[in-house]
Design a binder for these strands. Structure first.
Lengths: 221, 221
DNA sequence: TTGACAACATACCCGGTAGTATGTTCATCT
DNA sequence: AGATGAACATACTACCGGGTATGTTGTCAA
């Protein structure tokens, strides 16, 4: 039920990005990743598309709106990947393990969007925006906080049944997320890299995170 | 010897910040933390000091130079804290544990400067600056990379004697650092907080990181 | 055929910010 | 006392980038 509520919020804004917007979104996500929100310019996004500002401002009211759509798109992809795992019933530790795997793989595969999510959360924490943008960012960070709660609730369950051992739940969740998200900061695709290589990286990251939480069992996909 | 080489590089630029610069540095570090490099303005730093641009541009040639000094100051503080632990001879695992503790505590205590270090590394990775700034940033990231190597070499030793268990050394080091640095992103000082509270947080973070690396022993200060 | 509208491109405005050029004050040295 | 320069403040310029106003082109419905 928590899950369906989140799924609702995921859809109740603009229509899902059609073909035209999707192309803009990709370009914007890459620009935001490469320069950061404030350093990235709309003209640069346009150049990447081989077009001009006009195209972007025809679809988005402002730079902040464009960024918000990148953010939301990134989170939508996360929910779509993790929710199925979250909803299937099995041992909490196994579920957490799988969630961590698909989440981390998602960080690598959709890195530009996830970087925007990261920066968006930071922007909201700093709180340096106009009131209206602040509200939009607030909704989006709520959206991301509830995503985080999916993991947090699993951590709690696992701690209760003794599969995990940590002190403070919130801190554990925070540190775990930073660890799982860490490829955002040091991973960049190698030339001849295939799915197997990525899965090995994901495996190491997830192993680190789950061990960090006090997990003793073995860590499979 | 690696250590002394690093200490050298730490001193061979401008004279260490005197009183006047130190005040500017603190203000700048806080501004960069709250807004990020490109969104922070020199005028804002000046307002925080209760003065004007003139003061800042009298001591620094450019915004990039000011940022570089914040970066370097942050790293200097790190070396000063961690090097003594690194140089004392004791069991690698114990040494790593202590290094992790003092490092993480440093992240919390000098957060504004460490955020600048973090953003500086990211700016260098993105590579979006002028050639000369790029060189300056390059030296600084080298400085920070050698700091990272202090830990990396310890990880390697610990793995050899079986105290730690992980697959890829570089990845392990990266994920460990992100975990240890994670307070930069979720910690903010509580009103009535004292040293003991901070140490508890540090303890949890370090425990997570060392367990993540496969450490089985107990983790003391 | 034509009117209307979507999907852009072009040209422009304007606020903010990095950087500069020029005062002004005060201390120190001779 | 007068000169000199450090340590700022003030006033200004130049430019970049977000946003807008207006043109242009193709498509589709009536």
């Amino acid at each position: 039920m928590a899950a369906s509520a989140q799924a609702d919020l995921a859809q109740n804004l603009e229509p899902p990005a059609d073909g035209a917007r999707r192309e803009i979104l990709n370009a914007a996500a890459n620009c935001f990743m490469e320069r950061g929100y404030s350093a990235a310019s709309i003209d640069e996004v346009a150049r990447r598309l081989g077009s001009t500002k006009g195209r972007i401002y025809h679809h988005y009211a402002s730079k902040a709106d464009l960024f918000a759509d990148v953010f939301k798109t990134g989170m939508d992809m996360n929910y779509q990947t993790v929710l199925p795992v979250y909803e299937c019933q099995s041992d909490p530790a196994v579920k957490l393990c799988r969630m961590a795997h698909v989440h981390t793989r998602q960080m690598i595969k959709t890195k530009p969007f996830q970087r925007a999510v990261w920066e968006g959360v930071e922007m909201h924490l700093r709180g340096s925006t106009t009131p209206e943008q602040r509200e939009t960012l607030g909704e989006l960070t709520d959206y991301r906080d509830r995503y985080s709660d999916l993991f947090k609730s699993m951590l709690d369950l696992c701690k209760q049944d003794g599969a995990l051992a940590f002190d403070n739940l919130s801190i554990a969740n925070q540190v775990m997320f930073v660890a799982l998200n860490s490829p955002l900061f040091w991973y960049s695709p190698r030339p001849g890299e295939d799915q197997t290589d990525i899965d090995k990286i994901v495996g190491q990251v997830v192993t680190f995170a789950l061990r960090g939480l006090g997990y003793q069992g073995d860590i499979s996909s």
